[in-house]
Every structure is written in C-alpha cells, then in structure tokens.
Amino acid sequence: MEELLELKGFLLSGNIADALLLVEEMTEMSKDDKLNKIFSFSIILLLHLIKQKAESRSTRSWEISIFNSVKQIQRTNKRRKAKGTYLTLEELRETLEDAYESGLRQAALEAFEGKYEADELAAMVDQNKIIDQAIALISGDEA
C-alpha cells in the first residue's frame, strides 16, 4: 500500500522517471511473491510424490495434497491478463530441482514413519523421474 501512495505522489508531482522505477520494483516484488508460492507448493508436491514412490503406495490424503499442490502451482503460474505463464517449463524444472532437497528431507520425516534419513530415502527413488512426474502433472500431461 505504501508503494501505491508513493507512486501517486510521483505521478502528481510529474516525476515520471521515479514513478516508472517504482512500477518496475513493484512488478518484480509481485513476480517474486508468485515464484515463492510456486516453490512452496513444489515442496509439498515433491514430498508426496517421493513418499508414493518410496513406499509403493498412496493414501487419499497424499493424493489430495498432490492435486491441490498441482492446482495451486498452475493457478499461481498463470498470467491472467497477459496470458501465458510466469515460468517456462525449463524454469519450472529448475524450481522443482531446487525444491527437491526440501521435499526429500520432509519425506524422510514422514515416509516409513521416519525410519530413514534423507540420503537413504534418496537412494530408493529416482529424482529425475519424480521431477518428470511433477512436470507432467503440472502441465496436464498426466492424470
């Protein structure tokens, strides 16, 4: 809200250069917020995909978490007015790769009742396949 008042002040005083700089900064802040949300939902998505693969089973709760995470990633990544997405598939893959370790550590606490450390759980699953599955779900290529 403070930024909007500052922007109004710049425009009313005719200071277009500072107004444009502030608009650029606000745009970047908005995009950062969206990227942080996508990252957070990616961790939840990966956590449940890792547990499914490691334990060779699923629960309704995990499936709902996967569904909700995918929906939130899709929704957050979608540009409503300009169309398209904030992240390309390549950037989305990079985000998932970045979130993977956090998802793995969380999965280690939950899978097999916390019996395995993250590195032991990592040996039970294929990171690339998990990320490919996540990409497929987010892009709508998999049910």
Results as ranks from 00 to 15, higher is better:
1 M>N: 02
2 E>A: 03
2 E>R: 14
2 E>M: 06
6 E>W: 00
9 G>L: 05
10 F>P: 00
12 L>A: 02
14 G>Y: 03
15 N>V: 11
17 A>K: 09
17 A>G: 11
21 L>G: 01
22 L>I: 04
23 V>R: 05
24 E>K: 14
25 E>R: 15
26 M>H: 04
26 M>Q: 09
26 M>N: 02
27 T>C: 01
29 M>L: 04
33 D>A: 15
38 I>C: 06
44 I>N: 09
44 I>E: 06
50 I>E: 01
50 I>P: 02
50 I>S: 06
51 K>F: 09
51 K>A: 14
53 K>F: 01
57 R>G: 00
58 S>T: 15
62 W>F: 09
63 E>F: 05
66 I>P: 11
68 N>Q: 15
68 N>P: 03
70 V>P: 06
71 K>L: 07
72 Q>T: 09
79 R>T: 03
82 A>V: 08
82 A>E: 15
86 Y>E: 14
88 T>C: 07
95 T>F: 10
100 Y>I: 07
101 E>S: 14
102 S>M: 12
103 G>Y: 05
107 A>D: 12
109 L>M: 12
110 E>Q: 14
112 F>Y: 13
116 Y>A: 01
119 D>M: 13
120 E>V: 13
121 L>W: 07
122 A>H: 04
122 A>I: 00
123 A>H: 03
126 D>F: 05
126 D>K: 08
130 I>H: 04
131 I>H: 01
134 A>H: 07
137 L>W: 05
143 A>S: 05
